[in-house]
């Protein structure tokens, strides 16, 4: 998968050196984020990937502005229209909830590109020429890590802690469950919906309850799950990270991370706009194009065993 990424990066670079040499003004992208740029998850992931794209293209060619904590739909509407009026070329609403307002803004600003994701699919039906969609096939990566969880679990019980059944969260939950069941039909997959993206206390208690019910591998989405990760750490369970590499939060606990590489869908949008095509395309993050990939963190998976062999507490050659 890494190879695909490198390939894409090279391809992107090649395209950009050809395409940009003649252009003067930078392409201006605005992103509308539901939570804050350091939420450790959803919004932070996209923002960091866009900063990486700025590095890649150079500050003279790409400019990024953000609006954060746009929980409220009407506020996001104002922001999107304001960015459009200010001459931004691409306005990304990061969350399916912004889809409707962006469709209406796209009609009023036909010269500006708009993008919505994840869950962009239904909005392509409007057939707007200046509207991109993006999706994340989180079910794919969920299936992969769900299968692994079922095989790794010693207790035969794993747990999912999610906020609301919507968008890629619903996909991840469904894929994880299916993958786990496929790998081990007897696996018990516990699932809690906390009803909130920010209720850390509830996410933490859900984790506690799952651990008490025997779960030894936990995973989940939303900004609130860092607290649940802490519960996994304190109880010797493993955590499967989601959306960004979460290993830094608990190196001995986060066994792997299902990472979203948003660049895979944003880069072609930039290229398309450069080529004069303002929309009409749906992009998907999936295993095939490297937009989704699993990053394995050795420290949590078998760090203890290695350490044991090194310090002699484990005999590797009996």
């Amino acid at each position: 998968m890494k190879k695909v990424q490198v390939l894409l990066a090279i391809l992107g670079m090649a395209l950009l050196t050809v395409g940009f040499s003649a252009l003067g003004a930078p392409l201006k992208i605005a992103i509308i984020l539901p939570s804050s740029i350091n939420d450790g998850e959803w919004s932070q992931g996209l923002y960091q990937d866009l900063l990486a794209l700025v590095d890649e293209y150079g500050e003279d060619n790409l400019e990024v502005a953000y609006s954060e904590n746009m929980w409220n739909i009407a506020d996001a509407d104002v922001a999107a229209r304001d960015y459009a009026a200010e001459g931004y070329a691409l306005i990304i609403g990061h969350g399916g909830q912004f889809g409707n307002i962006l469709i209406e803004a796209a009609r009023d600003f036909p010269g500006t590109s708009f993008a919505i994701g994840t869950d962009g699919t239904p909005f392509m039906a409007y057939g707007l020429a200046n509207f991109f969609g993006y999706d994340a096939s989180a079910d794919e990566v969920g299936y992969v890590v769900g299968g692994l969880a079922a095989r790794l679990s010693e207790s035969g019980t794993v747990g999912l802690i999610n906020p609301i059944q919507s968008g890629d969260v619903a996909g991840y939950e469904a894929g994880f469950t299916a993958g786990a069941k496929a790998a081990n039909p007897n696996i018990e997959v516990l699932s809690v919906w906390t009803g909130s993206y920010s209720d850390s206390a509830l996410a933490s208690e859900a984790a506690q309850t799952m651990v008490a019910a025997g779960a030894d591998i936990l995973t989940g989405t939303s900004q609130a799950v860092v607290a649940a990760m802490g519960v996994a750490r304190d109880n010797g369970a493993l955590w499967f990270g989601m959306r960004i590499n979460q290993s830094y939060l608990a190196p001995a606990t986060v066994a792997l991370s299902s990472v979203y590489d948003w660049k895979v869908c944003i880069r072609p949008m930039i290229e398309s706009i450069r080529a004069g095509v303002l929309g009409g395309e749906l992009y998907d993050l999936n295993l095939a194009n490297g937009g989704l990939y699993v990053e394995v963190h050795e420290a949590a998976l078998f760090g203890k065993t290695i350490q044991g062999i090194i310090d002699g507490s484990i005999n590797s050659y009996p």
């Binding site: 929980w71 409220n72 739909i73 009407a74 909830q97 409707n100 906020p163 993206y197």
Partner: peptide, 22 residues
Amino acid sequence: IELIGVQHRLITEGSAVYFTGS
């Protein structure tokens, strides 16, 4: 009025603020 005049569609992801803006 806020629904019919501004948002036209009721959406939430778990909090009232999506609609009310507090």
